[in-house]
Deep mutational scan, measured.
Amino acid sequence: MLDDRARMEAAKKEKVEQILAEFQLQEEDLKKVMRRMQKEMDRGLRLETHEEASVKMLPTYVRSTPEGSEVGDFLSLDLGGTNFRVMLVKVGEGEEGQWSVKTKHQMYSIPEDAMTGTAEMLFDYISECISDFLDKHQMKHKKLPLGFTFSFPVRHEDIDKGILLNWTKGFKASGAEGNNVVGLLRDAIKRRGDFEMDVVAMVNDTVATMISCYYEDHQCEVGMIVGTGCNACYMEEMQNVELVEGDEGRMCVNTEWGAFGDSGELDEFLLEYDRLVDESSANPGQQLYEKLIGGKYMGELVRLVLLRLVDENLLFHGEASEQLRTRGAFETRFVSQVESDTGDRKQIYNILSTLGLRPSTTDCDIVRRACESVSTRAAHMCSAGLAGVINRMRESRSEDVMRITVGVDGSVYKLHPSFKERFHASVRRLTPSCEITFIESEEGSGRGAALVSAVACKKACMLGQ
């Protein structure tokens, strides 16, 4: 009897593995994704193909990295998701002549009506938060230079001027797309009239992360975010950046690689679950690469896999709870928690219980395998993109072996128990001629924006502006 049951459990697990095998990517698959990513990057950089390229390769006008001589107080704003952060950054000489960066910050959550109302409502709310922060720190009387981390696709015309191309991540505030974001912020500050600010720089969160990590390690020339969304930036040779005049030196390019796949480059790798996630998203047909990796989508992918296993009578005796059938019910943090389970399955059992399920031991094991399959594919897909960037940098610099540091931020990278190990191992397999160091950014977005502002202020002083 026991043997029969054991055989049935083994057969069930084997069927589960057959279904989950769809998520496995072979090294040849990853090399294919990497080569296609490089081709799209090239198209994004070139003037004649930029418009139709899915990977936009947006110039950021960040050319210099901090040298350690900029000092002063800077205000930093960070808008990239449902939370908005205001930070005071003091850049100065530390002990023994070292450079020191001290920060104080406060988080504000953005109400739904500000995210989806008008641009005026959104930026009025942001300036209200700045006003509140300055009151708390008794700094209303000071006109501070301000660095703005704005983590949406922007076409820069200068370091302090950028046109919002399109909202992502659930934002829909009308009247912002096609307009200068810094102008919208300046107008809102003017409307309030109770404080003055000098907006000197606007950067993407990947750029802010790279600059913040450069402060720790001067070989950091790539910034990457794996959180709600997924994106990367890197220092490109100016001669390859056709959208900006000049051939000397390097400029940081914001790849906006989340949109890779929007022209069909990933079609052969998309599964039924991916198509369902895409169809029910706020932007169907867009940001397809990001939807395979980002935390906004990972939990939902797992939920759809679990429903398939229920329908195949391989999980929960073929019956799903009402909660499990509800879109968004299986949160991405559950994926991390399930994979963090120590082996007694308590954590998995508790999560499934909150979803109205009474799982068996085998159910718990199957749910864990589903989570591992989805998150491992995410790590491997992400590795193909980064390997594409790094191999490109090595080739354009004609280096036999390139040493490089990548600064990384984002909740999936930082909080998932195995993502970074799987990701690092896969990147290294795909970049055999590179020695890569990964560092995690601390308060990256805010500190990085302030350091970019410090560079901009120093330049302005040198130019006598």
Rank of each mutant, 00 (worst) to 15 (best):
L75R: 00
M381D: 00
T60L: 01
S64N: 13
S396E: 15
S109D: 12
G249S: 04
D73I: 00
T118P: 11
G162V: 11
R275V: 11
A320R: 15
D344W: 06
A384N: 01
L184D: 15
T209Q: 03
D400E: 05
M8V: 15
V91F: 05
Q38L: 04
L271V: 01
L47A: 09
V455S: 13
D400R: 07
C434S: 06
V412C: 09
Y297E: 07
A188W: 03
Q106A: 03
E290Q: 09
Q138H: 09
K459R: 10
V203R: 00
G170R: 11
H141N: 04
V302S: 05
D247L: 03
N179Y: 12
I351R: 04
I110G: 06
G249I: 01
D262P: 08
R392D: 01
G72C: 00
L45D: 03
G407D: 00
S281A: 07
F330P: 00
I163G: 13
A21S: 15
Q323H: 05
F84M: 14
D124G: 05
V86I: 11
M197W: 07
T206F: 02
L307Y: 05
D341C: 02
V16G: 09
E14S: 13
L386Q: 01
T405R: 05
G258S: 15
A384S: 07
S280C: 10
L122I: 08
V33L: 05
L266V: 07
M121T: 08
I351V: 04
D132Q: 14
S212F: 11
Y234K: 00
P153T: 11
E95P: 08
Q138A: 08
F123A: 07
F438Q: 02
P417F: 04
M139T: 06
P153G: 15
D132Y: 05
D187L: 03
I225T: 02
G249V: 01
M462R: 10
G80V: 10
S426Q: 14
P153K: 08
V33W: 01
T206G: 04
E236Y: 00
E120V: 05
I189E: 07
R447Q: 13
E372K: 05
R36T: 03
R447G: 12
S398I: 06
E322I: 12
D135M: 07
R155V: 15
S375R: 04
E95K: 13
K169P: 09
R369Y: 02
T326V: 14
